[in-house]
Amino acid sequence: MRATQAVGRYGEELAAKYLIDAGFAILERNWRCELGEIDIVARDGDTLVVCEVKTRRGLNYGSPLESITFRKLTTLRGLAGRWLNQHALRPPQVRIDIVAVLLPHHGEPTVDHVRGVA
């Protein structure tokens, strides 16, 4: 496994733990179809939440949140629809969240959760 994949995997683990601690129920991780991948599918009460996790080791290239483009959000909307169709679910609400994980060289990792970005 390449170093960047290991960093991403660790970030996803931290994000999942953060969401569970916040009361979310994780339904699926790393779900894939021909459109792409959903990092985490969770339930927050009655709301289905599609979570994109972005992890960085530093801020040299901006924050992890800055890497989310309009194109990525459009893809996530399509992925959410595909996931719902495949699982035959019709939740009252669907939300797309971003979980940004920063792994500094010194100190503890930080997790920033932005709800309802699309």
Rank of each mutant, 00 (worst) to 15 (best):
E66M: 14
G36A: 08
G36Y: 06
N60M: 07
T55M: 04
L65A: 15
L65N: 13
K54I: 01
Y61S: 11
D44Q: 11
L35K: 14
D46S: 14
D46I: 07
D46V: 08
L48F: 09
L35D: 12
K54C: 03
C33H: 09
A42C: 06
N60C: 02
E34W: 13
A42P: 05
G58F: 03
T55G: 03
E52F: 09
D44V: 02
R56A: 04
R56T: 05
L65V: 08
V49L: 13
V41N: 02
V53M: 10
V50W: 05
L65D: 11
Y61T: 07
D39V: 04
I40Y: 01
T55V: 00
Y61D: 08
P64R: 08
T47I: 10
A42G: 10
L48Y: 06
E66R: 15
I40G: 00
P64W: 02
L35R: 15
D39R: 03
E66D: 13
R57F: 00
D44Y: 11
L48P: 08
S63F: 13
V50A: 14
V50D: 02
D46P: 12
V53L: 11
T55S: 11
E52T: 05
I38Q: 03
K54Y: 06
I40S: 02
G58E: 07
C33P: 07
V41M: 06
D44L: 12
E66W: 12
E34D: 15
A42L: 09
E37D: 09
G36C: 11
